[in-house]
Nucleic acid binder design. Structure first.
Lengths: 228, 228
DNA sequence: CGCTTTCGCTACGGGTCGTAGCGTAATGGC
DNA sequence: GCCATTACGCTACGACCCGTAGCGAAAGCG
């Protein structure tokens, strides 16, 4: 049964430790140098491997950074916090925490920019980064439907389109807030965003949108100030 | 007293035609080559100027592309379509049309990525691109308040935070849909997004979110298919 | 007509890219 | 234990782009 694995070719196997070291070195280089000043020679030196080893495993800087950044999103989880609003706040805060890290800030938008002219890179980003995030939307909706907070969908195609829409709204808002507006998606912002997403523009305003400041604590310095 | 004008220095004045030619050449190079393969030598050749002229006016590729892309957003307007929903749909469709152009797709995310490590560049993007978009949000809210669709805000600080939130949600959603999900923000998507933004997740679902396809006309080829 | 600034052009050092070539190390098959 | 196969480290290389310096000419202002 051991010979069933397709990777059991003859010859010296690739070092798995080198892979981890290279990806970690890539993230470290992103933190210190950013995307534009990051060179593969520098990454190789940090990882303790030769530059040619990098080119044997990745086609170039784009693919390498995608893999290095993708690992950051492995930690995304959707713990059950009891309500749809709490679930959204929890996962959005996780997403914001990842985007607050400099290695994500520098690398993510750069590879997305490159992907506009490279279909293969775009597909790589989709499978290794985007789909991992989108799964949480589907999971959150299932929970909300089980709780009765959202109605069940009869048309599968329409349900998929709605999930895609919600995903673009949530992920796009956090990314834009963090990277374009360059302001932190802290707990207060996430609370207001969740309220807007759930209630809508008109209802949110009528539900005391202007007076929301008095709802929570006076200052939210710690991200865990509110418990479930 | 003629020397009061700060730009009236002695010597040969800078060619305004060269500025326009350089920015147009930059956009053309973005379309053909994309961000990463764009070189300043190529832009200079296309514009019919010397490379040194580029460095006399812009610090580098980042600043040049910011100015070249910023001109694309000059055409953004907010015509009064009679209702808040129609106003949102109109401006979002304009924004989506700009982001559908390859010179915007390639350049915008690249300079945003670079701006994560360059505060001056971030400020340049904010003043020449972002603020121009954000103004439309404030204008749309004023109209909606005048129509009675939105309540008036008493707290100015809270109102500003709400406008920032809405701006991040709208712009982020369109950008994410267009550049990350890589799917067109067409009229149907914009209609569904507007409904979600106005009604919220719960109300939009209860208001027949799954059956929205039968609301408008059978096919929406023209952006002006729905009137107020 | 002088003074000032811009412009086009050439040339240059420095750096990165991506690849080729070679000898060596590690593993599986026999 | 030996050999074929593959991965690895190292060096070197041409090609390209960057950003700047220097020069003479052009275009305005007083």
């Amino acid at each position: 049964m051991q010979s069933r694995t397709p990777h059991a070719r003859a010859g010296r196997p690739r070092s798995a430790a080198a892979d981890a070291a290279i990806l970690a070195a890539t993230r470290a280089a992103l933190v210190e140098l950013g995307w534009s000043k990051l060179t593969l020679q520098d990454v190789a030196t940090r990882a303790g491997v030769a530059k040619t080893t990098l080119y044997r495993r990745w086609a170039g800087k784009n693919e390498l950074v995608v893999d290095a950044v993708a690992e950051l999103f492995d930690e995304l989880r959707l713990p059950d916090r009891g309500s749809l609003a709490a679930d959204i706040e929890g996962v959005v805060l996780q997403f914001a925490a990842i985007l607050a890290r400099p290695e994500a800030r520098s690398g993510l938008m750069a590879v997305v920019a490159e992907s506009t002219r490279d279909a293969a890179l775009r597909e790589r980003i989709r499978t290794s980064i985007v789909d991992r995030q989108k799964r949480l939307v589907l999971q959150g909706r299932e929970r909300a439907q089980a709780r009765g907070e959202l109605p069940g969908e009869d048309d599968a195609a329409a349900a998929a389109r709605t999930a895609d829409l919600i995903f673009d709204v949530v992920a796009g808002a956090v990314v834009h807030r963090t990277l374009v507006s360059a302001e932190p998606a802290d707990e207060e912002w996430v609370r207001r965003f969740t309220q807007l997403l759930l209630l809508g523009l008109g209802d949110a305003a009528r539900a005391g949108f202007a007076g929301t400041a008095g709802q929570g604590g006076p200052d939210g310095t710690d991200a865990r100030g509110r418990d479930g």
